[in-house]
Design a protein around this nucleic acid. Sequence first.
DNA 1: CTGAATGATTGGCG
DNA 2: CGCCAATCATTCAG
Length: 343
Amino acid sequence: MDDQTRMLTGLTGLGGLAQADVGDPDSVRKQQSLGQPQQDIGDILQQIMAITDESLDEAQARKHALNCHRMKPALFSVLCEIKEKTVLSIRGVQEEDPPDPQIMRLDNMLLAEGVSGPEKGGGSAAAAAAAAAAGGSPTDSSIEHSDYRAKLAQIRQIYHSELEKYEQACSEFTNHVMNLLREQSRTRPISPKEIERMVAIIHRKFSSIQMQLKQSTCEAVMILRSRFLDARRKRRNFNKQATEVLNEYFYSHLSNPYPSEEAKEELAKKCGITVSQVSNWFGNKRIRYKKNIGKFQEEANLYAVKTAVDAANVSAQASQANSPATPNSGGYPAPCYTPDGRL
DNA sequence: CTGAATGATTGGCG
DNA sequence: CGCCAATCATTCAG
């Protein structure tokens, strides 16, 4: 009903329009000089209205006749114009908003993470090789790193294949709609501009899918990062030798177990860990020692003896009578030799 | 599987 | 900023 009334109003208004400033005044004038355009339009209208009552064959024949009608082009352009002015102007208000900031943010992030953008297979391989070559000891982090990269590559691959699928689907659908509209435009007033707009609408709809894809990819990358780059999750115990070195220092400096920056660097180098790891270790050790000295008795005695033995060994020849000097004078309680482990 | 050990992180303090 | 204390998250031994 809506369509019919709209068509009616469109067509009844045609008389005025045709005489005023319709797309092709020449043809209109020709029509007028040839006969009675009003009559023609009335006929067309009648035919259009009757179409639904006809059989398919009749309709096809009628359609063909209508398509061949000399008035058809003029009428078509007029209808397009009317449609342009009424329906499309409403929808045309929401003009092309510049690329969604959200999607731009996601794009930037994906680019930064190396998910989108150019394939850097050679680069990463070279980096891995360099890392492998650089560390005489396998540093462990290079392994984790390559693992991380492998997972990232996986995400990247999924992302790209999904994006490809998405793009294919989008263009397929767009083509389909365009073909359909072009087909329809032979019988329905559809201007190229309208098709263009339809395409834009489709793209906008599809871009929300794209955004979702990018969003979930970003999330996956974030999860991966937190999995691998949060050291807390990938904690490795220091090797035995390292803890030995640290404990030796700790118990031989029990009165003041606060290594200077230089001492920390020295220890870090000796243990193959970072300075901040040394700081962490001492922080943990101090608090845990203080909290339960009894528990650390054994260890304390062990290292006390160890350092004593070492000292003795070093200065064995120098003097036999040297008593093991325990450098203890405050701060933390000295490890007394209490068998029951209580103080 | 469970609990202890342990490296790392966080928030507060001086 | 460095340290302490509490806490988290993982590893490891039983």
